[in-house]
Amino acid sequence: MGLLSKKIKSILLKQKKKYNFCFWEFPGGKVEENEYLIFSLKRELLEEVGIRILDFQTFESTTFFYKKMKLYFFLIKKWKGYAYSREGYLYRWVSHDHLKYFNFPAANYNVINLLEKIKFI
């Protein structure tokens, strides 16, 4: 998952609907078979929001036992292009101190708490 931050202290979120339920998440997706994690990050952000990552750092990983998956989060420090929806999802820049008011999948809350503690943006 890519944590894109702008200088105006906001982070990019994607709205997703599942089973008539709306929630927000960070842009990104699944690693394809035989794909390196970093290549997956770059591919997913290009496919979803049309940006090319220029600089990033690993932020956090978390295991979500319910779905038997591991999520990796990266701080995207610099990118080329303008972030826009390429797959029909609603995207929104949200102030970091407003993240707590959005409905996220359970696996994202640890990362959101860390972002608030370190004053990510």
Results as ranks from 00 to 15, higher is better:
Val31Pro: 04
Gly29Pro: 12
Lys6Tyr: 01
Glu33Arg: 11
Ile76Leu: 11
Lys6Arg: 15
Leu114Lys: 15
Ile11Ala: 04
Gln15Leu: 14
Leu115Phe: 02
Trp93Ala: 09
Phe102Asp: 01
Gln15Ile: 03
Tyr19Val: 09
Ile121Ala: 13
Pro105Tyr: 07
Ala83Val: 07
Gly50Tyr: 01
Ser85Tyr: 04
Ile8Glu: 15
Lys67Ala: 11
Phe26Leu: 15
Tyr109Cys: 01
Arg43Gly: 09
Lys16Met: 06
Tyr19Met: 12
Ala107Met: 10
Arg92Ile: 10
Arg86Asp: 06
Met69Ser: 10
Leu71Val: 07
Ala107Val: 07
Phe59Thr: 02
Ala107Tyr: 13
Phe65Ile: 09
Thr63Ile: 15
Glu48Cys: 04
Gly88Ala: 05
Tyr66Thr: 12
Lys100Tyr: 07
Asn34Pro: 02
Phe59Pro: 02
Lys100Trp: 01
Ala83Pro: 15
Ser5Met: 13
Glu60Leu: 15
Phe39Pro: 00
Met69Gly: 00
Arg43Pro: 05
Lys119Arg: 10
Tyr84Asp: 13
Arg86Met: 11
Gly28Thr: 07
Leu90Asn: 11
Gly81Arg: 04
Ile76Trp: 00
Thr63Leu: 05
Asn113Ile: 05
Val111Asn: 00
Ala83Gly: 01
Glu44Met: 12
Pro105Gly: 08
Glu60Trp: 04
Tyr84Gly: 05
Glu60Cys: 06
Ile51Asp: 01
Leu114Asp: 01
Lys119Pro: 00
Lys6Gln: 14
Arg43Leu: 12
Arg52Ser: 15
Pro27Thr: 10
Val31Ala: 06
Ile53Gln: 03
Ile38His: 06
Asp97Met: 08
Gly88Asn: 11
Phe65Thr: 08
Lys42Ser: 05
Leu46Arg: 14
Trp93Pro: 03
Glu47Tyr: 09
Thr62Leu: 10
Lys119Ile: 04
Asn108Met: 04
Glu25Lys: 15
Lys68Cys: 10
His96Asp: 08
Glu33Gln: 13
Gln15Thr: 08
Lys30Met: 14
Lys14Cys: 12
Asn110Asp: 06
Asn108Gln: 05
His96Ile: 08
Glu33His: 09
Lys77Asn: 14
Asn103Trp: 02
Leu13Met: 11
Tyr36Phe: 13
Tyr109Ser: 00
Leu4Arg: 07
Trp24Cys: 03
Glu48Asn: 05
Glu35Leu: 09
Leu71Lys: 06
Thr58Pro: 08
Thr62Asp: 03
Lys16Ala: 09
Lys100Asp: 05
Gly50Thr: 04
Phe56Lys: 05
Leu45Thr: 05
Ile8Cys: 11
Leu46Trp: 14
Asn20Ser: 12
Asn20Ala: 06
Glu87Asn: 14
Pro27Gly: 04
Tyr82Ala: 10
Arg86Glu: 13
Lys117Asn: 09
Leu90Pro: 01
Glu44Cys: 06
Phe104Cys: 03
Lys18Ala: 13
Leu54Pro: 00
Leu54Gly: 04
Pro105Ser: 10
Tyr36Glu: 13
Lys80Trp: 03
Phe23Ala: 00
Phe56Met: 04
Phe26Ile: 05
Gln57His: 03
Leu90Ala: 07
Ile112His: 06
Leu115His: 01
Leu12Met: 08
Phe102Ile: 06
Glu33Met: 09
His96Glu: 03
Val94Pro: 00
Glu48Arg: 02
Leu13Val: 13
Thr63Tyr: 15
